[in-house]
Nucleic acid binder design. Sequence first.
DNA 1: GTTAGCACTCGCTCTTCTTGAGTGCTAATT
DNA 2: AATTAGCACTCAAGAAGAGCGAGTGCTAAC
Lengths: 337, 337
Amino acid sequence: MLDERKKKILGTVISEYIRTGEPVGSKLIADSGLGVSAATIRNDMAVLEQLGYLEQPHTSAGRIPTYTAFSLYIDEFMPEYVLTEADKAVLDDYLESAEPTAESLLENASHALAELTRCAVIRRDLVPKFSVITKVEVVPTGKRMYVILLISSNGAVKNKVCRLEFDLTDEQLKFFTNYMSENLHGISLDELTPEKFEKIVAAMSAYMISMTPLLEEVKKLADDFADSGVAVEGEKNLLMRPDIDSAAVENFISHKSELAQFLDQSFGDLQIVLGGSGETIVQNTGLITSKIKKNGVDAGAIGLLGPLRLDYSKVIPYIEYLTGRITDILSDDMELS
Amino acid sequence: MLDERKKKILGTVISEYIRTGEPVGSKLIADSGLGVSAATIRNDMAVLEQLGYLEQPHTSAGRIPTYTAFSLYIDEFMPEYVLTEADKAVLDDYLESAEPTAESLLENASHALAELTRCAVIRRDLVPKFSVITKVEVVPTGKRMYVILLISSNGAVKNKVCRLEFDLTDEQLKFFTNYMSENLHGISLDELTPEKFEKIVAAMSAYMISMTPLLEEVKKLADDFADSGVAVEGEKNLLMRPDIDSAAVENFISHKSELAQFLDQSFGDLQIVLGGSGETIVQNTGLITSKIKKNGVDAGAIGLLGPLRLDYSKVIPYIEYLTGRITDILSDDMELS
DNA sequence: GTTAGCACTCGCTCTTCTTGAGTGCTAATT
DNA sequence: AATTAGCACTCAAGAAGAGCGAGTGCTAAC
């Protein structure tokens, strides 16, 4: 294990490196109030390098922390930052304007994180298993134009506009709406398998051939719900950074389905992955993910992708606060919170 | 006026500059089949520089075209590029997956342009004056949770989720929906002034105090429609370009309302603005905008923002084709097209 | 009016030099 | 045994200079 002084030295190197992004030399550390000379610190640093916590970009430069060092730092001796009331107010402000849906709240939270941390934010809106179809509706909006609405119990609404070859009569419309509502109401989005849908289509088109296009659209809507999205915001913040390979970031965030899977599989409330050791994420970046829940069930996740030299001590509380608030807002029994 | 040879020289300079981005020298032009020597061309180039069509970055470099030259080129001797069937197929492909609404079509068209030209695309979705409110609806989706829908006659749907303090009875819901539909149905989005809305709110809340939050949301929805958006896509394509100031682009595209105004005010079917002479847009960029119409009335616009040395001859037909197709698709009488 | 020839300009690139921050090692000190 | 002052050494980054070469403008000949 590291003795007390080595810990302090490593801590200083890390926090200085986070602050400046430059290699940290022994003199700077000696001046930061340790009470020992630069030479002593150099000796300790050599040991820390031996142990794999520090490395030198080149001989005549200072040291920079390794991934291992960051892990240790985050786990063990990162200073704890407690959000001020002002911090909370700012974050609350971002959430305020959101609707009480996972989608909208996550959107605002992403926004907040992207702006405040100048990093990229990944968000995953998970239509939860408990979400069922509440209503299907068709509204005429013009000559042979119809809007098809699919509303789910978690408040999400999807719509598609559809142009038919013929106008539908009021009866036909009513029939369609009733039929769909009866057959789909209360069905969980998981349960709406292609087979199930095919059956409905078959039954339907026996009645009225002209409605096939409508059915197609309903199907598309249901699909939309199923692979509900993963979105990325503020990726621009990571471009043009000398320490991060833009192309790799680009590549990472463009594989939406892998991203989605990654966010879904992340375990625990808060997960931190540092890029470089493994190849899970981009070299020289850190990714902090956190899930949000609705009544105890996963409802989405949010992830902050930034440089490895992220101000973890500050950023982590931000994320925790935001996901905590969202989870609170989403839970049905507000009174309890 | 320019004599024939000078025109040819200027044309070659411009097209070469568009192709390579480098200053063009006399030798290259001499080799491009004009039948005169480099010296002759140098003489002509000196004249063209005098006239303000060319400039030299420094003494020992070739010439690059000025804004004036680009204007002249676009207006007078740009080669005409006729879209191949393959080109059209690609563009059609992008539009195919869109719904027949201005919003969706513009979105796909932006996508197409951004990907094919590697430029930034601005799009403006204008809820047209002829668009009226078709339906207002409130759907319960959970404990005290309601989705409010506003559907307009052009097929646009906006929705908000709203959490109330109390559950509403079926009668209350029905009452609200009926009342709103009766009072708002057929109203143009222009006509829905704050005053008009206030009157409805006043009348409503006399009936049922608990509905005020719902009304607020309806109001917000109406506002959403009114300043319906301007969106930017592919701005990333313009970053990291040595010839374009990223900060200026950033600044230009972040002023959404100015952008919107700019697109709305653009006259004619196709407008081309070159940045640099005036300060309307970003230095060293070109902006090509085109409106789309629905049954002859403005329904939106799309704009391509790229480097000044844009391949206008190719890009312009792209835009014209896309906006033409969109206008066709949007118009109610498809048979005529 | 056109062209060959030529001296000239000047941005690039490559090399060399200098600087200075930071190191590791050694010998003296506590 | 741990700490420290001292010193020679390393090496990236920046400055200064040399040479190259693409391109020019001018002049004199065709």
